[in-house]
Design a binder for these strands. Structure first.
Lengths: 194, 194
DNA sequence: TCGCACATGTAACGTGTTACATGATTCA
DNA sequence: TGAATCATGTAACACGTTACATGTGCGA
């Protein structure tokens, strides 16, 4: 079995949207333009080639829809392989490094957890996230004290350097706070299922 | 006068480090490996070409240093043009869009504000940042209510979508909080100068 | 003398960005 | 009938990633 390169974030975002509901390239572009997903690029120059790649890899299939009007448009739906890969991506384990360097990917994943629709899986995802945040926080705080002790750095530079680190610390705290708050929502859901 | 393409974040990061103190390519790589700057890539494959680009653009100059040992190494220092461009980049105005989409660049800039070493400039930078954060926060909260009212979205998807938005909201709040907290440090400094 | 850290790169590759191209349909 | 929007792209280009290449000096 040939191990294909894992798709990019943009490709996964597209695959996820198509997984939620079959869409045309134009529909997808619209979503990227109008919503927060736009952070994963936009512009046809990125999206159309990405769609084509997904099709070439056999993860999605396009079908001409001519029911609505005279102008046909190509509507994409995930293949079985596409669904499988996407779910695998969703539930794949979270490393501390993911939390440090690939937060955007993690959040993208979580945004599609509606597909799994399982509070337990969501909970364990959030738990890993908050643990990862903890680890990074510890690391950042350590770096901060090292910074404070390092006499090689001119004190002005150290002053600004510390402040920049503080930003990272605030961001990480925000991540942890969000994860914990979200966990509570699922706790409630599990205790009192609909 | 030919308008050159503005350097990338990586190039500015390198230029800034060289501005703080002349360094060799290897020294720079080390810094990227060991510190939080690593988020702007690392790997020689990115750094060495970027250094070369800066040199070609006339922003830095390399000089062979053979004083220390038999093995010579090339130490880079900024040219006058390089210093000028870097300072211009530092103090350039902040748009709301910068705060939304280019936070990393803004933070990179701020990390080098030690070069300016002027509390007033730092203060106005932070003020713009916190105002930008305010604007984005307003936008995000609006999106959240739209999300809540939109009946086209299945309620499970809406549930997760809202949570993802909440993360953005938390991050933006963290940014604002950090900016305000930092502003106070400069206020103190201005009131009681060293 | 073996291996590691120092020191500086290059080559292939993929992907995103910017900008342009094209034609159909709808609405004023 | 002209403009805007629907709808789908392509081409050139720059940049970063991964992986490889090459040689020196130093300590065990």
């Amino acid at each position: 079995m040939i191990q294909e390169k894992t798709p990019t974030n943009l490709e996964f975002a597209l695959l996820g949207l198509i997984h939620q509901a079959p869409q045309s390239g134009y529909d997808l572009r619209k979503i990227f333009e109008e919503t927060a997903l736009g952070s994963y690029s936009s512009s046809p120059g990125a999206i159309y080639p990405a769609i084509k790649r997904l099709e070439t890899k056999g993860l999605i299939e396009g079908e001409i829809d001519s029911t609505k009007s005279l102008r046909p448009k190509k509507v994409y739906a995930p293949t079985e392989a596409g669904r499988k890969l996407f779910r695998k991506w969703l539930v794949q384990e979270i490393t501390v490094d993911d939390v440090k360097r690939r937060q955007d990917e993690l959040l993208l994943r979580f945004a599609f957890y509606s597909i799994l629709d399982d509070p337990h899986t969501s909970l364990s995802f959030l738990k890993s996230l908050s643990e990862g945040a903890d680890a990074n926080l510890k690391d950042l705080l350590e770096q901060r004290t090292i910074f404070a002790k390092n006499n090689e750095i001119p004190h002005v530079a150290a002053f600004y350097g510390r402040m920049s680190l503080d930003f990272g610390i605030e961001q990480t705290r925000a991540l942890r706070r969000w994860a914990r708050k979200s966990m509570k929502k699922f706790d409630d859901q599990i205790e009192a299922p609909s």
